[in-house]
Nucleic acid binder design. Structure first.
Lengths: 209, 209
DNA sequence: AGCCACTTGTATCAAAAGGTACAAGTTTAA
DNA sequence: TTAAACTTGTACCTTTTGATACAAGTGGCT
């Protein structure tokens, strides 16, 4: 199955005309690990849809980062999507976390098709809705939960995503994911270990419960 | 000008067919101050578009609140919008802050029209985009800024919204807006007063710079 | 005037989170 | 195998934020 066929299947694109358009305008690219797809404050010229691999999306301050979400196969970064509807700079960074195949579509077609083709309309709308609700939940967590809770939440969701109770990550990286410092992460993890909630090894965290 | 005419003008709705639909299915309501439009965890049955007045949208924990945004005339709460595309419960509270006129549209028409009518498509898409970007900026502030900064940001944006350097609000209410406690607000405001950034009076805060 | 509800100012304490510093362990690669 | 880079653990301290408590001020109402 070609990447385009995967795309059509994943987004349930049945309109022949739309398939033709996408075949004509879309570009398949294989990106190595750690390639930037969009960068904060730069203009967006393409809508990228992930076919396989994994893309991390985050925001950055001078010295801190905070994870926004991951883009999984047959999803798009909603922010590049939003940028395609009106010429604007990216508010986030997005970078591949492993070798990733994407299909790039020039922004000018994206909003056009959303009115012409039902399945494209559903795709864009759903992307917005899901991302919005996601972000809203994250916002609530950030507002009301303490760091130790957000940290364990992160670990659990990682375990889930990878289908493994062992998460391979350094404290430093973990600190970046949840927007704090390395020392705080070390302290919290140690406490969780004393409480028999995790087991710590070098660059490995095992969830026990 | 009727409320419907205001709506058509505000959203740039020129399609006669769509105007007919809206006239047929829409309901104009005048809501007194402090009326709930949607409540957290309850189902949404209508899309409400604000014609005049002001609606506050926020999230709640057991004991804390945090402001999400205000819905101004000729806007809709993007969350009820998102709910109209798939049957789901509200993630937020929304309540009128003054007497407010709204037009209610049953949810089942909202997504239908977004594919049939260009202006409705633009309206829904723009609502999503703007709200998403808004929320993203708030998220970043919440992640990286300290409370005193978020507090003064809030005051400045209120001053802007009301076109006045005097904000009439109690410390308690202010605490709820930014998601902290009353004592913290009092302390921070006092410090800003010592720094000649604000002047404090009973239930009034004057911005000096 | 006198009462009541609400508001504001603060002092004290406690908890959460972050910063600095350093020692020791692990990996990688020259 | 040895140095360099990265990783982890932890002690100590500071700042930020929150909780409790109380006194005093304000405005509205009877």
């Amino acid at each position: 199955m070609t990447e385009f066929e995967q795309l059509f299947k994943g987004l349930n694109i049945v309109e022949e005309k739309l398939q033709e358009h996408i075949l004509k305008e879309g570009i398949v690219q294989t990106l190595p690990k750690n390639t930037f797809i969009v960068e904060q404050d730069k203009y967006i010229k393409w809508l990228a849809i992930v076919i396989s691999g994994k893309v991390r999306v985050w925001q950055e301050n001078e010295d801190r980062q905070i994870l926004l979400y991951y883009v999984n196969p047959i999803q798009t970064c909603v922010l590049s999507l939003s940028a395609t509807f009106r010429d604007c700079k990216s508010l986030v960074h997005a970078k591949t976390e492993m070798e990733t195949i994407i299909i790039k579509i020039p922004v000018r077609f994206v909003s056009e098709w959303s009115f012409t083709f039902k399945s494209w309309n559903i795709f864009t709308t759903n992307s917005f809705i899901i991302s919005y609700e996601d972000l809203l939940l994250s916002y609530k967590d950030l507002a009301f939960k303490k760091i130790n809770e957000r940290l364990i939440d992160y670990l659990r969701s990682e375990a889930n995503r990878n289908n493994s109770s062992i998460i391979q990550i350094s404290h430093q990286q973990l600190a970046k994911e949840v927007g704090t410092t390395r020392e705080v992460v070390s302290k919290i993890l140690k406490q969780y270990e004393l409480d028999h909630i995790v087991k710590l090894q070098f660059k490995k965290i095992e969830l026990l419960s």
